[in-house]
Design a protein around this nucleic acid. Sequence first.
DNA 1: CCGAACGTGGATTGATCAGTCCACATTGTG
DNA 2: CACAATGTGGACTGATCAATCCACGTTCGG
Lengths: 206, 206
Amino acid sequence: MLATVAAMAITRPGPDKQFDRDQALGAALGLFWKQGYEATGISELLDAMGIGRQSMYNTFGNKRALFLEALGSYLDRLGGRVFAQLRAPGSPLDNVEKVFGIWEEMADEHCDSGCLLGNTVLELGPRDPEIATAMQTAIGALRREFANVFQRAQEAGELNSELDPEDLAHLVAATGQGAALLTKAYGSPEVGKSVLRSLSKLLRGT
Amino acid sequence: MLATVAAMAITRPGPDKQFDRDQALGAALGLFWKQGYEATGISELLDAMGIGRQSMYNTFGNKRALFLEALGSYLDRLGGRVFAQLRAPGSPLDNVEKVFGIWEEMADEHCDSGCLLGNTVLELGPRDPEIATAMQTAIGALRREFANVFQRAQEAGELNSELDPEDLAHLVAATGQGAALLTKAYGSPEVGKSVLRSLSKLLRGT
DNA sequence: CCGAACGTGGATTGATCAGTCCACATTGTG
DNA sequence: CACAATGTGGACTGATCAATCCACGTTCGG
């Protein structure tokens, strides 16, 4: 499971850790996100996390486990925002566009990192079946949520009912990934944002 | 330059190479394409190419140069087909859909490899400025060609003239990359093909 | 106040990698 | 036939990597 293990509640003897676990994990996430798994070395991670070697191994296990935790926190955080927005009351198509807004915000703040989900699919998918399966699951969850919201949009008369909600969900997932890739390719958010706005227009039927 | 250096025309003494350079390059391309640059080792390359270590270094220089040649041949081959189709006489929008057909064909034949252009952007873009620039150039050339064809489509009345051809070109480039990514994520061509067909429908105005 | 348990950091290890060295085989030339 | 030039393959090298070992400092329980 990629789900983060809940922090141990039992009090135990000995000194507490001298660093903030979540902050260290966030620093590791930033590096993995921008550089990828293999291109990020342990020493580099330790510098960014501000902790020593043994502390990292004691706390997270090994490099792969650290990466899995960082990936899980990324998916939880981003997925949480996106899913909440898609399920929010109000116009379904407006909610889709608000999700595009979240993605544009990400492009602004992380224009040279892309999307960790897509990055991981390409780098680790071919040689790590467990990660590949987890990524399929994450994409599938996103697609299902979009399919639902497109279904509601059709029922509300906001969307051409000849289109298949499942296919549109695939299209949105693919275009979102492509926008993240172009954003990283150019190191600037403008192209990716233009992509999302064009897709909005097409979905609106113009 | 990524352009392949023309084979030397001058005859020279000594024995000829005992292998087919293009075939060896193709084998290397297949591995880099599927696995990425770092995940592909020299020994693995040599096995697939069917040649010895020293032959590879004599012929291609080093791993990076071998990769650049493989990448160049990929871009030349695929770009050649796509550009020719976009410039072909006839309906501009039909030509766009025929390019989608080329991409679907690629998804069928290489469903677990994705697109080497996108793969390279994500893996090597952040730490190899020369490659990053080359990838920007390749994407830019593709985008320009699509923008031209969308312009012609609008002049022919095939496409809503309120849309910006440049933005649409970005959208198509992004969605194509996203479709390749989803194809690799699932290891099957169906999702990617559905994405391209949905995009076709939307471009046709439903 | 002492001792056990834990966190920490520097030194070390074993594996793996790209790249090189060198001896040998093969071919064309004088 | 012999020499020179080139292609080839196995052994080797130096660097880098993740991961471990071990000695030290700190904190809490009895």
